[in-house]
Design a protein around this nucleic acid. Structure first.
Lengths: 172, 172
DNA sequence: CGCCTCGCTATCATCATGGAAGTCAGTTCC
DNA sequence: GGAACTGACTTCCATGATGATAGCGAGGCG
């Protein structure tokens, strides 16, 4: 009766969550992106129990998001650094940050993404690299890919007459 | 000794995770975006225990991501629909989907975002709405916002000489 | 030598999860 | 009009996951 794994589900969201969906994992990644590498740094920044931190780090290393390496033999010291797969997670963190800022920061944002050149706050939007059109628009849809099974097709098929992933409209 | 809450942390990522960071929550949202609204739909699609689904739905409603409403009195039937705040979560889901596709779909993607006009697969990139420049670039940084406390500033200050949220370079 | 740091591991009380079964209002079948 | 169904849950309970605290081993510091 252990926690159900999402690993075998065909959905890429489920597969991804299987690696980063646990309590603490994403915050650890956040700190890794902020430049932290050492056990004590994470532990102090997060206020997490050492046992838990240890388990999460092992899981993230196994998932290929972090790499553990010894940077000193005497004294023995380890560090955890983001792998390319881990670095690639940044956009998820940034969209989550933006969402959090817009909905759960009544006193104003505590972190902002700014244009280093102008100092102006940036407003992240997802666009298609080729056309630069916002992916939120009704011109983009989700479709079953080459490796889709029945279940996936069923889920996508029941997609509503709204557009991408079910949106109705963008409220400014 | 209950599960630690992220709600009081100033970080927008932590605040957001406090609402959607539990096991199942994001998959429920995924299905909601796919057009599902009813208890039985979610339960069947996810293979989740009814008790768990019930708790997660209540939490998502309390967090303001879903709205529960009765659409029939006889027989009594409820449905769960995305609120504006929930709809606003879509970009996070899409970046996660893209990340999952690129890293955990060895047999090829099972879901793809495509341009409805051309049918070509879209490649999501985060850009600044005003300048359309990719936010991944070194020209964007994270800075402490108006509501940042000491802890937040400390974390941002120790940011490495890499660029945004610690990236080194984009690997194609 | 005594004390401190870093990176953990060990223990243990308590909480959350997952599975199965039951409830309640109404609907449909025959 | 009674049996069987459906949808949306609730209750219960055996376990696994968490969180707090304590301790350990290798080494450094004064």
């Amino acid at each position: 009766m252990q926690r159900k794994s999402f690993r075998t589900m065909p959905c890429p969201i489920a597969r991804g969550l299987d690696r980063v969906g646990e309590w603490w994992s994403i915050l650890i990644l956040r700190d890794a992106f902020a430049g932290m590498t050492r056990f004590e740094e994470f532990r102090e920044s997060l206020g997490i129990a050492p046992g838990m931190l240890s388990r999460r780090l092992v899981a993230l290393v196994e998932a290929g998001l972090l790499e553990r390496r010894r940077y000193s033999d005497t004294p023995p010291r380890e560090e955890y650094v983001l792998t390319p797969r881990g670095e690639d997670f940044r956009p998820v963190l940034l969209t989550l940050l933006d969402w959090g800022n817009r909905h759960f920061a009544p006193e104003g944002p505590s972190v902002q993404i700014v244009d280093a050149a102008t100092g102006a706050p940036a407003e992240p939007v997802l666009v298609d690299r080729a056309t630069l059109r916002p992916i939120e628009a009704p011109e983009f849809r989700l479709v079953a890919g080459p490796a889709a099974g029945r279940g996936m097709k069923a889920r996508l098929a029941r997609e509503r007459p709204r557009d991408l992933l079910g949106r109705k409209e963008i409220s400014a």
